[in-house]
Design a protein around this nucleic acid. Structure first.
Lengths: 235, 235
DNA sequence: ACAGTATTTATCCAACGGGTTAATTTCTCT
DNA sequence: AGAGAAATTAACCCGTTGGATAAATACTGT
């Protein structure tokens, strides 16, 4: 009460409101998909009136696209922060895998949004001029890392960087985005600490072994799960 | 007109009707997700009345679960048909990757259904007693293949079969389920013949190189896309 | 201080969509 | 044949939902 002015019925804050709306929309769309998302819930979550969504962003579809573009924007900008140029090739690849894995872990909504958009066959993304111009810097990074690796003799073969990029993303993405069904099927929790550590070790080991021809130390960890079975538990 | 009896208003065909409903539901759910699916459209597609869905299967959720269970049922039964016991380890792994890839290609609805279910955090699958008992036979298959490979010296290291299974699935799954957004981002069609051939070659090469320590012939194809790559395939 | 504009609230509504009710038609068994 | 059960149709119900309209309230510059 005793704060600055006295509490008015409401204050203006267009920028803040827009951000809160987009954040709420991100939550809602990633939790329920496009069709399952409820405009009213987004409004409520943003502490706003439903009319505000239309006023500040647009209708449901525009809202969704804005969220999607924001998500791409965010990952691309983080990707740019990671420079692999000065690392030796195997270390650069390891770093890349770790970044991808951790980014997905820290931003589960990103995974959900991509799933949702792919379910829609990228119908919305195709309309976005924004996203099409945001190339991932990774592909070129990988290209030079691979070239350096081959030249130095660290890597036994030159892979197509796009394929490698997709594979690295795939190994993390699928594990995390499908962890719910996989956990049911395998009857164990794929998201507990130990399982996650093992997964990261496995991925790094797999990719580096393929590139260098030598199985990496970390790969071995996954190898002999001394079989008090890796489990830990689910549901 | 001049057929068998004369055309009655309608014939009875409970089993056929049930199948048509489930098939239509599979299409609808995989195309639009759970929330996006329309019960009326399923009925129309099945050449039936909406009431029939409820009569033969149940409400929307039950319909969805039946479809999901059917999808798992199908892949598990095909998996069982694949026996890798008599192949030498590297060949068995290659076979496994090819099967997975081709199955996903031939059954795109399976991918969509899994995405949908994971978006729902496997809420429905958890309720299915059926699916929980249908363990994939792959894990045990892989375990013995890996053991044989290590013993014979073909493989340089013993991987955890669950991790390997997930990785093999991941490499195909992600590429296909996310091909829509990836195609937009890379500005090229990941689903044309050439791209698919290269992808399969890359996956086989990656996994086998990791296991054996030697880069496989096929791996090279991806590198220098001379592309008349292996394969035979699909769709 | 006040006029004009930007921001927010309070209601409303028409279409949609899942599900239900009740009547109708075909089949089967005796 | 014909009665009872099974399968199918047709019509309706009603809460939900995206979106729109109009009025109120807070700012801004002059």
């Amino acid at each position: 009460m005793a704060k600055a002015k006295r509490t008015l019925k409401w204050q203006r804050d267009p920028e803040g409101m827009r951000l809160r709306i987009l954040e709420a929309a991100k939550q809602e769309f990633s939790a329920h998909g496009l069709a399952g998302a409820r405009v009213d819930r987004i409004a409520a979550k943003a502490g706003a009136n439903k009319r505000m969504l239309y006023y500040h962003v647009g209708n449901k579809d525009e809202l969704y696209l804005a969220v999607l573009e924001g998500a791409y924007d965010k990952i691309r900008s983080e990707e740019r922060g990671l420079d692999l140029e000065h690392l030796d090739p195997p270390e650069a690849i390891r770093r890349l895998i770790e970044f991808t894995w951790n980014y997905f872990l820290r931003n589960p909504e990103f995974l959900s949004l991509l799933q949702t958009e792919n379910l829609a066959r990228a119908k919305h993304l195709k309309k976005s001029t924004k996203v099409k111009s945001m190339h991932s810097p990774f592909v070129e990074m990988i290209r030079t890392v691979v070239r350096r690796g081959v030249e130095s003799g660290d890597f036994q073969v030159a892979v197509d960087p796009v394929q490698l990029y997709i594979s690295i993303a795939a190994l993390s993405f699928f594990y995390l985005s499908n962890s719910a069904t996989l956990s049911v099927i395998f009857g164990r929790d794929l998201l507990d600490k130990k399982a996650k550590d093992e997964r990261l070790a496995h991925m790094v080991g797999l990719v580096l072994a393929a590139l260098t021809g030598q199985s990496v130390a970390l790969f071995e960890i996954a190898k002999a799960p001394k079989s008090r079975a890796a489990v830990a538990q689910t549901v």
